[in-house]
Design a protein around this nucleic acid. Sequence first.
DNA 1: TCCTATACGTTGTATATACAATTATATACA
DNA 2: TGTATATAATTGTATATACAACGTATAGGA
Lengths: 125, 125
Amino acid sequence: MTADRLSNETNAILKPFGISKEQYNVLRILRGQYPKPSTLSLIADRMISKTSNATRLVEKLRKKKLVERTQCEKNRRRVDILVTKQGIALLEELDPIVHASNRQMRNLTVKETKELNRLLDRMRG
Amino acid sequence: MTADRLSNETNAILKPFGISKEQYNVLRILRGQYPKPSTLSLIADRMISKTSNATRLVEKLRKKKLVERTQCEKNRRRVDILVTKQGIALLEELDPIVHASNRQMRNLTVKETKELNRLLDRMRG
DNA sequence: TCCTATACGTTGTATATACAATTATATACA
DNA sequence: TGTATATAATTGTATATACAACGTATAGGA
């Protein structure tokens, strides 16, 4: 529930830029691989989600020209996803805004943030 | 993300009983008021959600005969929601299962759980 | 070579959420 | 009294998620 609350505020910040928090997350994953392409399974793994959802998020980003999809030549089951220049530019615009907002939003000290992350890690098992 | 992970495992546990984690949550809120009825706004407040979503969750519970809806006589804008005997019975069946699962799942000590809750409270502001 | 199992992705259905617009009732107050 | 405002809930649209069923493509073994 609490995580949702944060998530929503991030969504509100991103809304004027035309993407959701989850789509922003996918873009960051893609940038992490750049200039190498990512597969849908890789994206899904990083999001701890299903490939079916990665399929649809990527499709939304593709329609906005923020990513490109091409069938992988070496393994035609795969689809190579690559963030476009527009995607990178959008990320660079968004990063400082989102980071500042996150810090302010959760109102925790640095020490508390570390402890929170430690506990969340433990929860993940 | 982490909260989602937990949430899904709880959903998996509840699935055989025909309700979702969110619906279970609504039932518990209603039991907390029992035998007093709750309004949709009260439920939404407790869930840190919107009344629109409470409306739909309650409707699903109503179709399963787990709650009853009646228009409030004193204030006809309100709708009184009351958990039924079947609802209470289901909760009693589910509580130990869900609690055991939560404890196991998150793998934290009692002290850590308290600290986690404290930090989450701080985050809520 | 052929057949089976696995890998990668897509689509359909159900769940939940946020936000905006709308309806209906109640309250405040000029 | 009559009008404006606030409260309570509903409905429509968009977002995301999980799960299951399905369609290809690849790999491995008989």
